[in-house]
Every structure is written in C-alpha cells, then in structure tokens.
C-alpha cells in the first residue's frame, strides 16, 4: 500500500492547450514528459525520450496511437510505451486523468 500512498496527481495542462496529431512536451520538476491528445479526447503521457537514443518523442509525427521518433523513425506506442516492429525497447508511460478539461498526470513515487 505504501506505493499507492506516494503516488500523486500533477496538473500539467488544460486540454485546450493540446492539439490532436501533435505532441506537447511538459517538464515536471525537471522530468520531461510528452502528452498526446487523441481524437476521442483521451490523453496519453509517456517519457519524452526514445528508448533508442533519447530522441524527443514530443516532436515526432503522430499517427493515431503511435508516434514516430524524429531522430531515427522508431515507432512507439503511446498506449504501452513499447517500440513496434523489429525495434525493441520501451519508454515509461504514465496514467492520465482529465477532470473539467484539466489534464492530470499520475506520478509514481516521490518525485
């Protein structure tokens, strides 16, 4: 239960600030996350660093539930954080909650 106690929600953006098809980088206490708004209003949050060589995924081309890293075109799932195809690797993903247009990211542990 200790783990649950240390999780906390962080307000990162208003949903209006996000656009479908384009990532948004937010820096939470020095940690870089990429937010992606989907057509159905769901927001995904993943670490803004490609498992390959750390490319900024927030700058990648977005296709539905995937983003293509701008450095070497790795395809990363926004939902699971995993690399697709022949590439292997995974970025951290974070739970997101949207309440009254406010976007919260659930940060694990004490940040």
């Amino acid at each position: 239960m200790a783990q649950v106690d240390t999780k906390h929600k962080v307000l990162v953006a208003n949903r209006h600030e996000l656009a479908v098809g384009l990532g948004k980088k937010v820096v939470i206490e020095g940690k870089e996350l990429a937010l992606f708004l989907q057509k159905d209003g769901v927001v995904y949050a993943i670490e803004d660093s490609c498992p390959h060589l750390g490319g900024p995924l927030s700058e990648g081309m977005v296709s539905g539930e995937h983003v293509f890293c701008p450095l070497h075109d790795w395809k990363i799932s926004l939902k699971t954080g995993e690399a697709a195809g022949a590439d292997e690797g995974c970025v951290a993903r974070f739970d997101v909650e949207v309440e009254n247009e406010q976007v919260y990211v659930v940060m694990p542990g004490s940040v």
């Binding site: 906390h8 953006a13 600030e17 384009l22 948004k24 980088k25 937010v26 206490e29």
Partner: peptide
C-alpha cells in the same frame, strides 16, 4: 507559435 509548441511548458508539483 503556440500551436507548434515553441513555448516551454514547465510544471512544478505543489501538494
């Protein structure tokens, strides 16, 4: 500029 994400978005945790 806003649409293309030129502005830096920093959030601090206040709990």
């Amino acid at each position: 500029q806003q649409d293309l994400g030129f502005e830096k978005k920093e959030v601090s945790i206040t709990t």
